[in-house]
Design a protein around this nucleic acid. Structure first.
Lengths: 131, 131
DNA sequence: CGGGATCCGTTTCGATACTG
DNA sequence: CAGTATCGAAACGGATCCCG
């Protein structure tokens, strides 16, 4: 597993298990990567890149490596020209789907309530709002 | 709400709602703060500091402000000497409890499996392990 | 007691250019 | 196609000192 994750798993008390989840799932694009692999079963590097908002290869590669090091996804390399690499969820990754879904659901609700608050403060030219 | 959160809520597509949750809940100590407020109902600054592992006041203050700005907790100041400040969960914060619990549960499970893996690699002087 | 101000090291993200 | 190497900018957590 990642050095960072190992440190956390070793040193932290049980009081903050939630922060372990965030340490593992909380990188840029990571929840989206896991969701996409949950939907599509298997995706190649380029497919993932296109389905996300085309992050730089450097960034996407690192997130994928971290997820692999933490045991959530598997990486299969086909030694051929042109190269081909397939990513899938591992069992651990599959087990994270309910949590990912919960994060998605709460985040969506939260965003909805907050957008209402924002719109109330600065109405977006909708019905009944004074011009 | 926090500028960062507002940016995310405004700009991000619905594809990555999970990352909204992580943006809101993912700071240092934040899940622990929310858990503690869930258990204790109301806590003062110093009580929180002691229940956590005594983070620096600077850090704790900022996490609390961010949670307040994002609408998850409330802050009540008693203008007296010595000062007294009480923190509680808001309705939004209460609504995050199931998610916090889910994060805690998954993180705990994950840590357990990973610790097993670590122990298998480097056994900690337990039964049957060669000296 | 509950912070604010200042400073600093690390981590992290992202852009650009290059490669087997 | 699926990366790697190098660089820069910013965010973040933390230590230290000071204050009403």
């Amino acid at each position: 597993m990642r050095e960072k994750t190992e440190r956390i798993v070793r040193e932290w008390g049980d009081a903050c298990d939630a922060e372990i989840s965030i340490a593992v799932l909380g990188g840029a694009w990571k929840p989206s990567i896991l969701s996409l692999l949950g939907e599509h079963e298997v995706l190649r590097f380029g497919e993932l890149s296109r389905l996300l908002d085309e992050p730089t290869a450097r960034v996407l590669t690192r997130q994928l490596r971290e997820l692999e090091d933490d045991g959530l996804i598997t990486r299969e390399v086909y030694r051929q020209v042109p190269p081909k690499v397939e990513y899938r969820l591992s069992d651990l990754g599959l087990g994270s789907m309910p949590l990912i879904d919960a994060l998605t659901a709460w985040g969506g609700q939260y965003a909805a309530t907050q957008r209402s608050a924002l719109d109330a403060a600065a109405p977006p030219a909708s019905h009944k709002t004074p011009a």
